[in-house]
Design a binder for these strands. Structure first.
Ligand SMILES: [Mn+2]
Ligand SMILES: [Mn+2]
Ligand SMILES: [Zn+2]
Ligand SMILES: [Zn+2]
Lengths: 142, 142
DNA sequence: AAAGAAATTGAAAATCGATTTCAAAGAATA
DNA sequence: TATTCTTTGAAATCGATTTTCAATTTCTTT
């Protein structure tokens, strides 16, 4: 089931309407570079849909998070960022504090150790953040 | 060298004054339960120092971070939190989304794998966040 | 098709923690 | 003392996020 279908099903379930604006936002979000902020997406959308409002972009992104198509990230620059969420995979992030580059990484051993830590404290993990901040290769050279 | 000494040395180095307010704030911070917000500390201080202002608490906490006595954390509730930083140890956090309980954990194997991940991307780590969100034992039972 | 009911929209306003401003007060220096 | 500089706290500002609200659109019922 692709994401448009998931979104439709979710909207019907919630008694909401899959409007043209919402379709355009979902589409633009899915074709966006990852980790875009609300404003990134709003500005990108304006080019093709000048009448779309910031509030609608914001509200739709919240809906995408609610139905599991998107995940909200926060890398400490004061702007919430969103990225498409794939049910079958997970990654964490390296964030360059100089140029803003975001690198994604997967490390199953860390995930496993994480589960062991939680188990030791009888803690139920619902989600987690693991972010390494510093300098990417390019920026470290300078 | 204890923290008051570190603070003094830092203040002299920066040409700033170790005022009574700043001393009171440092003292209250060090004796506070960990992970307190600016407002937590401000309200606690008011009891003994009713004339102290929120702005001064905020500014002093920033100074403590700058001189390495405190570290600023953010657990996603919209309030910056501060905790005393010990140079020789490091921990990460489990955060209960129900009752707000914060558990600290240390896992050297994770730290090591983290370094390996960074090395693989030729990434220089300056700092990192690793937080597991979910339910503590108590809250999971209910 | 027309009317009524309900949801959506976007501009503007409100929110809220963090940060800054500024005039008064307090120190240090000459 | 006069001068210069820092600090203070109340209030104002900031900026991203969220909400409000009147107008519009969509859906449902006659
Ligand atoms: Mn990512
Ligand atoms: Mn801690
Ligand atoms: Zn970089
Ligand atoms: Zn709990």
């Amino acid at each position: 089931m692709d994401q448009a279908k998931i979104f439709n099903a979710f909207m019907i379930h919630k008694g909401l309407k899959t409007t043209n604006q919402r379709k355009a936002i979902l589409n633009s979000f899915l074709h966006s570079r990852s980790h875009c902020s609300t404003e990134d997406l709003y500005l990108k959308l304006r080019k093709k849909h000048p009448k779309i409002g910031y509030a609608t972009v914001h509200r739709t992104l919240k809906l995408l998070v609610e139905c599991g198509i998107a995940i909200e990230q926060n890398f400490g620059d004061g702007h919430a960022r969103f990225e498409p969420l794939r049910a079958d995979s997970h990654h964490d992030h390296l964030v360059c504090q100089q140029c803003g580059l975001i690198i994604e990484f997967e490390e199953p051993q860390i995930e496993e150790l994480q589960n062991q830590v939680a188990a030791a404290y009888q803690f139920t993990i619902r989600n987690h953040r693991h972010e390494l901040y510093g300098l990417c290769f390019r920026c470290a050279r300078k």
